[in-house]
């Protein structure tokens, strides 16, 4: 007798981000417009730049935490744009609406039992639940200790709190601060450096910083150029270039 799969959960609908559709159109403008029109291109670019992203999973309060915290983790500096400019909060919100958001390839069968850290993640929480409960508990902690929400604090205080989370000295109810921090750091860096298709890495800013050429994927003549820098800027899957 086969038992039903205890881990199955309704899968959220995967929707292609609207912005990525716009980017895709931009990237392939030269191919799909019979008569390339700069005004059409400009209008699309304008729409892409101006339309503010409305989070679907996160509440406005949660999203303002996410925006502030990811910018501290990956700040704008002389190397290039930070998390906000790259669209990292948008990326994370979109990821929560994919199978990843419900931990579709995590083993989530009970019993759940804590153990040594080196034996890995043992919480009964998928990414959506980690964020929902983690942000609520952290904002409660911040309000108690500082009398404001996280986003209203100075950058220096925000860094102090993030450092404490990373070091494990803040417990977010049933979530160790370190676990929450690692989830946030991982998703932040994914958003900075994944293909713009997923809503982050706006204008390929993450890849430009690193000199990563994106989907070029053909380096036959660049196997060994004795240490010269690769000359071409990145291109995305949809054909967007920087």
């Amino acid at each position: 007798m086969v038992k039903p799969d205890p881990t199955s959960t309704p899968k959220p609908r995967f929707t292609l981000p609207r912005r990525s559709v716009t980017s895709a159109l931009l990237g392939t403008t030269a191919f799909w417009l019979t008569q390339p029109s700069t005004s059409v291109s400009r209008a699309l670019a304008h729409e892409a730049a101006e339309a503010p992203y409305k989070p679907e999973f996160f509440t406005a309060e949660e999203y303002s935490f996410l925006t502030a915290a990811t910018e501290r983790l990956f700040p704008k500096d002389h190397n290039g744009p930070g998390a906000t400019e790259l669209g990292v909060p948008e990326f994370i919100d979109r990821q929560m609406q994919t199978p990843y958001g419900v931990g579709d390839n995590w083993y989530m069968s009970a019993p759940f039992q804590e153990g040594p850290a080196n034996l890995g993640y043992q919480l009964p929480l998928v990414p959506r639940a980690l964020y929902r409960r983690g942000i609520a508990a952290l904002e409660q902690y911040v309000l108690q200790h500082y009398g404001k929400n996280f986003a209203a604090l100075s950058a220096q205080t925000q860094d102090t709190i993030l450092t404490a989370l990373e070091g494990g000295s803040i417990q977010l109810h049933d979530i160790p601060g370190r676990t929450f921090f690692e989830q946030l750091r991982t998703n932040t860096l994914e958003g900075a450096f994944s293909d713009p298709l997923y809503g982050g890495n706006h204008n390929l800013g993450g890849w430009l910083m690193l000199g990563f050429p994106g989907a070029r994927a053909d380096f036959m003549d660049w196997v060994n150029q004795e240490g010269a820098a690769y000359p071409l800027p990145p291109v995305s899957i949809s054909g967007q270039t920087a």
């Binding site: 069968s109 039992q113 034996l119 890995g120 993640y121």
Partner: peptide, 13 residues
């Protein structure tokens, strides 16, 4: 688990 006297825990991720 690392040793024979420990409780092994699932490799969840």
């Amino acid at each position: 688990r690392n040793t024979i006297d420990q409780t092994a825990l699932p490799y969840r991720q």
